[in-house]
Structure formats: C-alpha cells, structure tokens
Amino acid sequence: MQELAIFGGTFDPIHWGHLLVAETALHQVSLEKVIWVPSLNPPHKEAALFGHRVEMLQLATKDNPSFTVSLVEGKRSGTSYAISTLIDLSACYPNTHWYWIVGLDTFQTLPGWYRGHELAQMCDWLIAPRQLGGETITQSKLICKQVEQQLKEQSLIIHWQLLNIPLVGVSSSLIRKFCRDRQSIRYLVPETVRSYIINNNFYSNKSE
C-alpha cells in the first residue's frame, strides 16, 4: 500500500513556508508523494484566479519529483470541500494510505467541516504548528488533543502527529500585503514565483 499525502489550500501565493512543511512531511513519515491541491472556490475566502495559483504552484514544485499538483478541484463546480477531494483522489490513487497536511489553526476547526467527522477517520493528519514563541510545541499538542477529545466524545478516533519543522514567520497574507505596499518579497517565495507575481502585477491593489 502506498503512502501519499494531500496538501490542500488556497496557496495565494505559495511560499517557502508551504514548501518547508511539505518537505518535512515527506520525510517524517516516509511518504512517496505529496499531492498539492489548490482550492477552486474556498468556502471562507476569496482568492486569485485558480489558473494563476496553479501556475505558481507548478513553478514552485517542479524541481521536486516527490511533489505533484492536482487539478481535481478545478474539475468541480461549487464550493471546494475536503471530503470530496479525498474521495476523488482515492479513485485516482487506489490502495493508498492517506495523510492530510494541515496547519494547526485549520486542524482546530476540523470538527466543524462539512462531513468533517467522516473525513477525520479517513486519513492520518500531519499538523504544522503555528508560531507561539517558546510554548509552540506544548501549546500545539494541547490544541490537537482538544480536537481529538471532541471527536472521541462522539466515538470517533483520529490519528495525528505534529510536523517537526522550524518556524517560519511568513504567510500568504503577509506576501500580499508586501506587494500592496511595494515591499520586496524576495526570499519569501521561490524566485520563479516572485517573477510570476511581478510580471502579472498580482496583489498590488488586492484587498484582504
């Protein structure tokens, strides 16, 4: 049985933090592949056009043979839901043990996702801790255990582990802000992505 991970998100834009999370997951649990899945219509936010986000993802990941970008959500209409993505990818990759890579803040909301209780048991969860100063790991584990307990109270079992990553204080929202403020984003994103953003004049007038 192959071991694959889904890394979903808006990736608006992809940055070095995303790449570091995916690379850490790849080796921490000996994955064969990380499948990057950009959201077509994220439920709670607006994002740059799907095609542009896909292009930036492909530019950023093309040099790593263990990374692949899936357009599975681009073939769907309506809101992008995680469980639909997993079901569709399972049809493409049978006989797979699935992992899902997610940030801590997002994992905390899992019990409230559309069919989240069902999804929670369909894969193992690899969680990127957030930046909380010296208490990062302790606080992150506590939050994960709270989610685990919420599900356990409904007789649901979830398997999770924290990713052992150095904390990188970069986010897509910060990059968009820098673009609006005409600040340099060099070394926050891969150079190919930076060039794409500049050449297409992305985010310069984009509101949060």
Rank of each mutant, 00 (worst) to 15 (best):
N164V: 10
H52C: 12
V37I: 06
L57E: 13
G116C: 10
K45N: 12
Q131D: 14
G78T: 05
K177C: 11
P111T: 01
L174M: 15
G169V: 11
P65M: 03
V102Y: 07
N41P: 04
Q108G: 09
D88Y: 10
C123F: 06
M56W: 11
E3P: 03
P190K: 08
E73T: 10
G169A: 15
R115V: 04
R53W: 04
D105H: 02
K141L: 12
L19T: 03
T85V: 09
H52Q: 15
I35Y: 00
L19K: 01
N64A: 08
I158D: 01
H52K: 15
G133A: 12
E191R: 06
L104D: 03
K33D: 05
I197V: 13
W160L: 00
G78L: 01
V21H: 00
T85E: 07
G9D: 05
L89F: 12
I35A: 04
V193Q: 09
Q131K: 12
V102L: 13
M122F: 01
A22P: 02
P42H: 11
I185R: 01
G78W: 03
S207C: 12
E55R: 15
I158G: 02
A120E: 01
G103E: 04
T136Q: 00
F67H: 10
P38N: 08
I6R: 09
Q149L: 15
L126T: 07
K145S: 06
A25L: 13
N201E: 13
L119S: 01
C179Y: 02
I137E: 09
